[in-house]
Amino acid sequence: MLRFVATRFGIVIPTFIGVTLVAFSLIRLVPGDPIELWVGERGIDPERHAELLRQFGFDRPLWQQYLGFLGDLLQGDLGKSIVTQQPVLSEFLTLFPATIELSLAAMIFAVAVGLPAGIIAGVRRGSAFDHTVMAVSLTGYSMPIFWWGLLLIILFSGTLGWTPVSGRISVLYFFEPVTGFMLIDSLLSGEPGAFKSAVRHLILPAIVLGTIPLAVIARQTRSAMLEVLGEDYIRTAHAKGLSPLRIIGLHALRNALIPVVTIIGLQTGLLLAGAILTETIFAWPGIGNWLVNSISRRDYPSVQGGVLLVASVVITVNLMVDLAYGLINPRIRRGAGS
């Protein structure tokens, strides 16, 4: 197991260094030097310009700048936003819970619908239900989710008036964030109706963000079920006269779920990419929205820090999925270790 963990880390570390290189180059690849970007169109006199370049270390050789960047990084210093003058890391940490809350809700929706749909479709192969699930999941997979979000707004917010159009909670409620998770904070606040308002705000974005993972999970579950149901031990279980429910629920499902769990874990990157679009549509104050705004404001330190942090989250989650997979499945562990 130790060797397995070591190999996995051996792959992750160069990847992480590569990501820091990408983030480091980002600001330097933009036409014009960083100082010119910061002062924008106001302009700056050449002497002051040279002084600032020296002050921020932009006149040093690139490799020294990179080492300095890595050093700051290790101390948790990701620079300051040009717009708000706040440290990038603290801005990220303030907004990240909103994205986690949205992503978790989306994932719960995707698993709660996709898993049973995939299982039933696999068991009832060739039935009308199977065909429907496959058609719906292919459509979901091809869905431009920014459009899907707008359609749901037209239907549920416009025509039916059931859900609000944007934000995390109604402006009627205000309380200090404790955990950053609106569902928990609204409960803690004790204000009547606050929790209900938070839930109503969360439903549409979660459905929109969960749609593609839902399609992927349903398809993968179905094909994993089909594969397992063709195994000899399932036939043996049938021959023993076990009830179909027991065979599917106990014998087949447990084995079918192993690859599905991995797929669910690997959706993190997809979720964060989807969050960029979903948060933009619903004005959800998370990191996706923040990144898009930072780009349009040309706030490059925020973009740089944000990219680095998002990539770190994806790398970490993928590593954890990998390790968890090795933990459940000894065959993987031995295969990768040797």
Binding site: G18, V19, G269, L272, G274, I276
Partner: peptide, 9 residues
């Protein structure tokens, strides 16, 4: 490295 970043990002 390129695969570690969400494609849209």
């Amino acid at each position: 490295v390129m695969l570690a970043l969400p494609s849209l990002l």
